[in-house]
């Protein structure tokens, strides 16, 4: 039944969920949004990071701390992935897009299979002092784990926005997709810039993956539920906009939570794709696309 109270609940929780969606999408906002790399392996890397946080949990390491610990390793993984993609596909020019898509699908599939073979198909969870408790915001009970995700998401998008606008490398990352040849004239090597940026995008996924296993139990094929969500958020944001990613994440989060509250959970997965199609149809440049 519809009630105002229920709607308020849904909106407040939706904002929290939305910030979490922004956090798991923001790496893709760099790799796909800014670098034009069709990184469909993004959600699989996310799940991989969740398993990393779960493994580190055995050593009594807090999942968020685990996320930070995994960042250098994920940075290197990202650098290697981009290098391989560049050498085998991107360098060869125009049809790189479609073949690159196949490459990253392959990577996603390999990650999924490796996780299944190594850890099985069971759901995994982590322990932390903020998991299982809840607090009240605007008379709505919010699980503490959502608050943790919310805070990290805000800080992450803030840090990336600053990095991309205030540093030499950050500005070069934003410039590289706009005009690679012109960037070369500035004395920068576009491939090195993209490689660095893809490394950062993947390092961010390490932290986002830790948030994922804080928010919900993780199983090897969970990445499939996040392909639609992450791409929806990034496209809705307007490719490559960090603050836009936060707003788009919140829109998706609120929309999902409202539909979930009003019509039931079975409708939720359709929301992201519906929003994605709406955005592509009505405003293909995204909400914050310039």
């Amino acid at each position: 039944m519809f009630s105002l109270e229920l709607l308020l609940d849904a909106v407040v929780l939706g904002v929290m969920v939305g910030c979490f969606y922004a956090a798991v999408s923001i790496g893709l906002s760099i790799s796909f949004g800014l670098l034009d790399v069709p990184n469909v392996a993004h959600p699989a890397l996310l799940v991989l990071a969740s398993y990393g946080a779960w493994l580190l949990g055995d050593f009594d390491i807090d999942p968020i701390v685990a996320g930070f610990i995994m960042m250098p390793a994920f940075f290197l993984l990202g650098v290697m992935l981009y290098r391989t993609y560049h050498e085998t596909f991107e360098k060869r020019g125009s049809d790189a897009g479609v073949r690159g898509l196949a490459f990253f699908f392959g990577i996603a599939f390999i990650i999924e299979v490796v996780i299944i073979m190594r850890f099985g198909v069971d759901q995994r969870t982590v322990q932390a002092f903020y998991i299982g408790k809840s607090i009240e915001i605007l008379e709505v009970r919010i699980p503490m784990r959502m608050v943790a995700a919310f805070v990290v998401a805000i800080l992450l998008s803030l840090a990336l926005t600053l990095y991309l606008s205030k540093t030499f490398l950050g500005r070069a990352i934003r410039a590289v997709a706009q005009d690679e040849a012109a960037l070369r004239l500035m004395g920068a090597n576009p491939v090195a810039i993209k490689q660095w940026a893809f490394g950062i995008a993947t390092a961010v996924v390490a932290l986002a993956g830790a948030l994922l296993i804080i928010v919900q139990p993780v199983e090897p094929t969970l990445d499939r539920a996040y392909i639609g969500r992450t791409f929806c958020v990034v496209v809705m944001a307007g490719l490559g906009s960090m603050s836009g990613t936060l707003v788009a994440g919140i829109i998706l989060g609120v929309a999902e939570t409202i539909v979930l509250t009003m019509f039931g959970a079975s409708w939720a997965p359709a929301i992201s794709f519906t929003l994605l199609l709406l955005v592509l149809g009505i405003r293909p440049q995204g909400l914050f696309g310039r």
């Binding site: 030499f168 920068a188 310039r290």
Partner: peptide, 19 residues
């Protein structure tokens, strides 16, 4: 001219000093 159209004037100038 080959400017970076989606960056600001100042950001374009700063990129000129990338080296």
């Amino acid at each position: 001219r080959r400017l970076f159209p989606k960056l600001t004037v100042e950001e374009n100038l700063m990129l000129g000093a990338f080296r």
